[in-house]
Design a protein around this nucleic acid. Structure first.
Length: 681
DNA sequence: TTCTCGAGCAAGCAC
DNA sequence: TGCTCGAGAA
């Protein structure tokens, strides 16, 4: 039963009967099927608030979310409900990876890991794989031999599916099958190398966490620290994550899973919609609550989403119903090509802004990061500020990797790969010299305490022009590794030392250094360097904007995002671009029924982000990367998911104007030559 | 040994 | 289109 105070709070927050049921359910596993926009966050927050109100210890509540942003939002909402920020703040929250990391660190010795084990992100892992591949004598140039990224994909699919590599390769990478023995050897070498380096990659964190929870000694210990485990976005868990949750359940934790099987879009990360579909069967005594009242969109928009979801007979049936009345029909905009698409989007964005809609209330969604390339040009030309989420990730930018390499060395000065990377920032230093410097610096397996004494000898291998900057950098790394120095000043020293190297090495060094300033600001709020490093790696900022200090109130920008990164977010106005068949579904995914089903769900996620206005653009002619030889353009139809029935729910708009002016072949076989060669005769 | 440049080829979403 | 690798010059 709820106390009167909370009773009032719930009513104020207007929980509907189903949401209330979910918030107040006690005993036994709970599955909340929450359609898009049905107040999932409000419900989970209310449930946490209700548990706290009953006297639950916040530290004994575990909240597993997909991103740190989601965890933060949940905790903020909960504290506005209970009004005790401090108590709520003690709730253990984060992503599977970050929470797993905390346990693996605590139980490192039980796992036979060094107490100060390091972390590899996806890019680091691929680099180590590349190293092993070359050592085993498979140069990257060899015909049809998988590249490092492909090797990394094979590795992660294999361990996450827990199936033999031969099966995975045969099924998902058939073009690599002739090399499967060599691939298996490289993966074995990769595991051995990680052990000898004392590092874990992202998959290892989950594997080790699961091992801890399943172990008869450590398992009860870990499960015993929690009474309640709440998992958000359950449709996107993979087999290992599902095992972890199930083990916690078996060891006595009360489990709540929240998700929407129709928003499962992460199968490429080995997530499977089967885990949410099979939840009631696996967790005995499950109470299932379905939320289908939509508080986000208007009915004309939801009708389209419903029409798309109805094409898939599987899953929990649900039809979204709007709670807000009225609304306009969505538009399906047929345009000539992607440059016209970019113009039309800009026109509309500016028109809506004239009507008082902030840029931040508008978003442009796309299948892939580079679908927005042309649009970004047009936005810059018209001076419309924007922030881009997804696509090329922040951590993959070379200068950010440089900075993280320095950060890693502060914690682990013996890290060969990081040194190798940083040394080559200097002019006149390549792989050859780096190797000699490292030989002098790291010796043969000697331990690190004496490492800094060897720096002068190591620096002697450097060309004199490179010596001052690298010596300064080494000094900054050594100072940053001193635990007495707080993370803010420590990272600032690193940044200062990197400054001349970054400016000289990259053409746009100026801009890159500003990015790093944002990282230093973020580091200032962390408790120590190692924690900061882990946080950045395990929950990377979606863009440098994520790290920046809170922007001024008068700043406003349009949001560009991939559909994947847009999950869980909403805007007043949404533009979905490049919705042609071949992109929705992507050609790559169109080979299998499950692949197509997932693409449909991806479109569904995009369609359900809008509150008031939705425009879907389908360019007739689009650019694509040449797959073989010949034309680099394709002629597309609108996505097959927007069939006749779905299209009838749109206002179909043909782009205005000159649809024939640039039509291919209009001039027949004419050849117009421009030739200045005679000038150089 | 480092750097530059051209050829050849691959492919997206991300903790 | 943009990365990676190999050839060849400084």
């Amino acid at each position: 039963m709820l106390r009167p105070s909370l009773e009032r709070v719930f009513r104020q927050d207007s929980l509907n009967p189903e949401q209330r049921l979910a918030a107040e359910h006690r005993g036994g596993p709970l599955l909340v099927l929450a359609g898009a926009g049905t107040g999932k966050t409000a419900t989970l927050s209310a449930r946490v608030a209700s548990l706290l109100d009953e006297g639950a210890d916040p530290q004994r509540i575990l909240l597993l979310t997909f991103t740190r942003r989601a965890a933060r939002e949940m905790i903020n909402r909960t504290s506005s409900l209970v009004g005790e920020r401090a108590a709520v703040g003690k709730v253990t929250g984060g992503t599977f990876h970050s929470v797993g990391h905390r346990f693996v660190r605590s139980y490192a010795s039980a796992l036979g890991l060094p107490a100060d084990f390091g972390l590899l992100d996806a890019g680091d892992g691929a680099d180590v794989l590349d190293l092993v591949r070359n050592e085993l004598g498979h140069p990257a140039g060899e015909r049809r031999f998988p590249r490092k990224q492909t090797l990394a994909d094979i590795y992660t699919r294999t361990v996450n599916a827990q199936r033999p590599v031969r099966e995975i390769v045969a099924e998902l990478f058939p073009w690599c099958e002739e090399h499967v023995d060599a691939v298996a050897g490289i993966l074995r070498g990769y595991s051995a190398r990680k052990r000898s380096l004392g590092v874990l990659d992202l998959d290892d964190l989950l594997l080790h966490w699961r091992a801890l929870v399943q172990d008869e000694t450590t398992g009860p210990h870990i499960a015993g620290t929690f009474d309640h485990v709440l998992v958000d976005e359950y449709q996107d868990v993979n087999g290992i994550q599902a095992d972890i949750v199930h083990s916690l359940h078996q060891r006595g934790c009360s489990v709540t899973a929240v998700g929407d099987d129709f928003q499962a879009i992460y199968s490429f990360r080995s997530a499977s919609v089967e885990h949410i579909l099979g939840f009631p069967g696996k967790f005995e005594g499950t109470k299932t609550v379905t939320l289908d009242r939509n508080y986000r969109g208007t009915q004309p928009l939801l009708d389209v989403a419903n029409a798309v979801s109805a094409q898939d007979a599987r899953g929990y049936p649900k039809v979204l119903r709007a709670t807000r009345p009225g609304g306009n029909r969505p538009q399906l905009v047929q345009c000539r090509d992607q440059s016209q698409e970019a113009e039309l989007v800009c026109d509309q964005v500016l028109a809506d802004r004239e009507d008082g809609l902030l840029l931040r209330e508008q978003a442009v969604l796309a299948r892939t990061g580079h679908d927005t390339d042309l649009l970004e040009l047009e936005l810059s030309r018209r001076r419309i500020p924007y922030v881009k989420y997804g696509g090329l990730r922040y951590l993959e930018a070379a200068h950010v990797k440089d900075f993280l390499a320095a950060l890693r060395l502060a914690d682990a000065p013996g890290d060969e790969m990081s040194w190798f990377r940083l040394l080559q920032l200097a002019e006149g230093v390549g792989p050859g010299r780096s190797r000699r410097v490292l030989e002098a610096l790291l010796g043969r397996g000697e331990t690190s305490p004496r490492l800094w004494e060897r720096w002068p000898a190591a620096a002697a291998e450097l060309p004199s022009s490179a010596r001052p900057a690298l010596t300064a950098l080494a000094g900054a790394i050594r100072a940053a590794g001193d635990t007495d120095l707080p993370p803010g000043p420590a990272t600032d020293r690193l940044r200062t030392a990197l400054d001349p190297l970054v400016r000289a090495h990259y053409a746009d060094g100026e801009v890159r250094m500003q990015d790093l300033a944002a990282l230093v600001t973020a580091a200032g709020e962390a408790s120590d360097l190692r924690t900061f490093f882990a946080e950045v790696l395990l929950d990377p900022p979606a863009s440098s904007q994520d790290l920046a200090v809170p922007p001024h109130l008068d700043e406003d920008w349009l949001v560009l995002s991939t559909v994947h990164s847009a999950k869980g977010l909403e805007w007043q106005s949404v533009h979905l671009i490049a919705a042609y068949d071949g992109n929705f579904p992507a050609d790559m995914a169109a080979g299998s029924a499950e692949g197509i089903a997932e693409e449909r769900r991806l479109l569904y996620v995009a369609l359900t982000r809008a509150r008031r206005s939705l425009r879907v653009y389908s360019p007739h002619r689009y650019y694509h990367r040449p797959g073989g030889s010949g034309d680099t353009h394709g002629y597309g139809k609108v996505s097959r998911f927007l069939d006749g029935e779905a299209q009838a729910l749109f206002d179909v708009v043909a782009a205005p104007g000159d649809s024939h002016r640039f039509a291919p072949g209009a001039i027949g076989g004419a050849r117009v030559r421009v030739d200045v060669d005679e000038l150089f005769a």
